[in-house]
Design a protein around this nucleic acid. Structure first.
Length: 607
RNA sequence: GCCGACGUAGCUCAGACGGUAGAGCAUUUCCAUGGUAAGGAAAAGGUCACCGGUUCAAUUCCGGUCGUUGGCUCCA
């Protein structure tokens, strides 16, 4: 387990959680005496135990409540946990009726590890411990049996699916309550909730799962991001291309994707005896752009960018709001370089990420270098020497960049090492926002070449990069990151104009026209609602600025400005005067125009 | 894909022993013309996700499908 205790308090909590898992097993055994026990480890928020229930005995939510009562009762019975060291043979006898335990015993015995059991009351479990010495150490108000889930034995989809029962457990009831409260708060910031409330995107059964509709307000964010990416990439020396979303199947045989990913691609369309696939990625298309004309070393590095429309037939069970969809638009580009240029280009890609994150105020992120999984070497194509070189080069680039990173020995792409950027939303959820690769394989596969100084033909190195990931996942992230209160440049509505009475509608329209002329996204509330209601309406939609216009404003050709209050969630630096003394219309517009142009995270009216 | 849970009006949710349903908000209309987070009234809105089965009768019970979701697996 990775959850080794590192302090006395943590150690005590670890013991309590672990012991609760055993008490849960006791309750479950009473409910289904023939249940097969798998494992019951401690996790960050408590514990779980995996079971294989007898036919027809899968517990209902009602049963879970009973387990909870039973565990509570057991915990209050002052049961001792008694540890015992046993031999493999004794263990085999003791757990003869428990096939999963037997499997564990064989493994442990093979590795020459000592076996221990813990006995609590009439229940003995194979377990490395540690546990409480007596259940009176457990706070019986600080845990709940929360929910069930399916989980494969040993995390392998080829194995049986077991029923996992999760428990939340903390050192005190206060901490448990705090955890539940925090989860509730997190739900309010959940991009699915906010997306509905702020009318950013929607799904429709008739269209299909994982295929989002971008509503007008959400589309504004998408376009702003895309414009920003185009502007930035232009400055960084990228050229834009457009490639089809559909292709004859052979392209994906050339790339090697088809045999590997057939199941997660939309099925082919057959027409005039040809199979066409909808593209799940843009790479091969960009390679074809590269090879459309002969290339010289002088053309390199060649950076081809496209917000490409990709479709992947993801497993229905893995779809998740905007974060995991079947139709996505990717901030993709491929950089074709000489061997000498590759590291520098890779470093620049990392710098580009840093730039994007800085503008968006994403300060918690890290890189993860995914190398080949030694247990699954068959997945990876290409020459060993190329892999070594690519791994060295990526590592070097990461060193140079000085961004913190960790190395993982699995998860590389089949054609090269992968560098992911993990970012964390304000509710603590981690996202892989961007994946990048250094690829020495596809160039050869597609016979890409350029003529070098000496007239020889060489294969370019290829960097795959996508700093803003897909619109879908990235905006999903941004919704949670900003809790729906986007910086002004990204806000669907930037200024909400609220006339005090009907008689001010005409003036409101004038102010509106001035905003629109300045490129500010404005709306006038012409409803017959009360002033308070109109203000509230603008505020629940998290509009950055409300212009209130009444007699005073008409007379002075001004607007009274209400600045969005970010409440307790706000960063200190975002503190603003909520009410701004009436400003001339032109002046107010100029200030906000500048804030938008700067893509500022902060209000121009900040203190 | 797998295991589980859930699906009632646009949204958030009530509801019943099996006898075709209700609230708040949103929408529309009317009244009020209001100076900073919900003014008042009325109307309209549902094949209770869909398809089968049991039943005199199904939104309610059973089965299947679709969708959402908690996890597991996967993620070029």
């Amino acid at each position: 387990m990775n959850n080794q205790p590192d302090s006395k308090e943590a150690d005590q909590l670890f013991r309590s959680r672990h012991s609760l898992a055993h008490l849960l097993a006791m309750a479950v055994l009473e409910y289904d005496p023939a249940v097969k026990l798998a494992i019951g480890p401690v996790i960050d928020t408590g514990f779980y135990y995996d079971f294989e229930f007898s036919t027809g005995k899968i517990p209902t939510p009602e049963d879970l409540k009973n387990f909870q009562k039973k565990v509570k009762k057991l915990a209050s019975e002052n049961i001792d946990f008694i540890v015992k060291e046993i031999s493999a043979d004794e263990a085999r006898k003791e757990f003869a009726a428990q096939p999963y335990k037997i499997e564990l015993i064989e493994e442990l015995a093979k590795n020459g590890e000592n076996l221990t059991t813990y006995t609590s009351g009439n229940f003995t479990d194979l377990c490395a411990g540690p546990h409480v010495t007596n259940t009176k150490e457990i706070d019986t108000d600080a845990f709940i049996i929360s929910h069930t889930a399916g989980a494969y034995w040993k995390g392998d989809a080829k194995n049986n699916m077991l029923t996992r029962i999760y428990g939340l457990a903390f050192a005190s009831k206060d901490e448990l309550d705090a955890h539940l409260k925090q989860k509730e708060e997190a739900l309010k910031r959940d991009h699915r909730e906010l997306g509905k409330k702020l009318q950013l995107f929607a799904f429709d059964e008739e269209i299909g799962k994982g295929l989002p509709l971008w509503l007008p307000k959400g589309n504004v964010i998408k376009e702003e991001l895309e414009n920003w990416a185009k502007e930035t990439e232009k400055k960084w020396g990228y050229q834009r291309v457009t490639t089809p979303i559909i292709t004859k199947e052979n392209l994906f045989y050339t790339s090697g994707h088809l045999p590997l990913y057939k199941d997660s691609m939309y099925a082919p369309i057959t027409i005039e005896d040809e199979h066409y696939y909808i593209k799940p990625m843009n790479c091969p298309f960009h390679h074809k752009v590269f090879s459309a004309h002969p290339k010289s070393y002088k053309d390199l590095p060649l950076r081809l960018a496209e917000y490409g429309w990709c479709h992947r037939f993801e497993d229905s069970g893995s779809l998740f709001g905007l974060m995991r969809v079947r139709g996505m638009q990717m901030n993709d580009a491929h950089i074709y370089t000489t061997e000498d240029q590759a590291i520098n280009e890779f470093v620049d890609v990392i710098k580009l990420h840093e730039y994007y994150y800085k503008v968006l105020g994403v300060d918690k992120y890290e890189m993860e270098l995914a190398l080949r999984d030694p247990k699954n070497m068959a997945k990876y194509h290409g020459e060993e020497s190329d892999w070594k070189l690519a791994e060295d080069m990526t590592m070097k680039a990461m060193e140079i960049s000085k961004v913190p990173y960790k190395v993982v020995h699995e998860g590389a792409a089949f054609y090269g090492p992968k560098m992911d950027f993990q970012i964390y939303s304000s509710i603590g959820r981690a996202f892989t926002a961007s994946t990048n690769q250094l690829d020495l394989f596809m160039g050869k596969r597609f016979n890409l070449e350029y003529t070098d100084k000496d007239g020889s033909k060489k294969t370019p190195f290829i960097i795959h990069r996508a700093p803003l990931g897909t619109h879908e996942r990235f905006i999903g992230f941004l919704i949670e990151h900003f809790a729906g209160a986007f910086p002004t440049w990204l806000s669907p509505v930037q200024v909400s104009i609220v006339p005090i009475a009907d008689s001010h509608h005409e003036y409101a329209k004038k102010v509106f026209d001035a905003c629109i002329a300045a490129g500010i996204r404005a709306e006038v509330d012409y409803s017959g609602d009360s002033l308070g209601k109109k203000i509230r309406e603008a505020k629940v939609h998290k509009t950055p600025y409300i212009f209130v216009v009444g007699d005073k404003e008409v007379e002075g050709n001004t607007v009274s400005i209400e600045v969005r209050d970010l409440g307790n969630d706000s960063d200190k630096t975002k503190e603003v005067e909520n009410k701004v003394a009436p400003l001339l219309v032109d002046e107010a517009i100029m200030k906000i125009e500048k804030e938008i142009k700067d893509r500022s995270l902060y209000s121009v009216f900040k203190k």
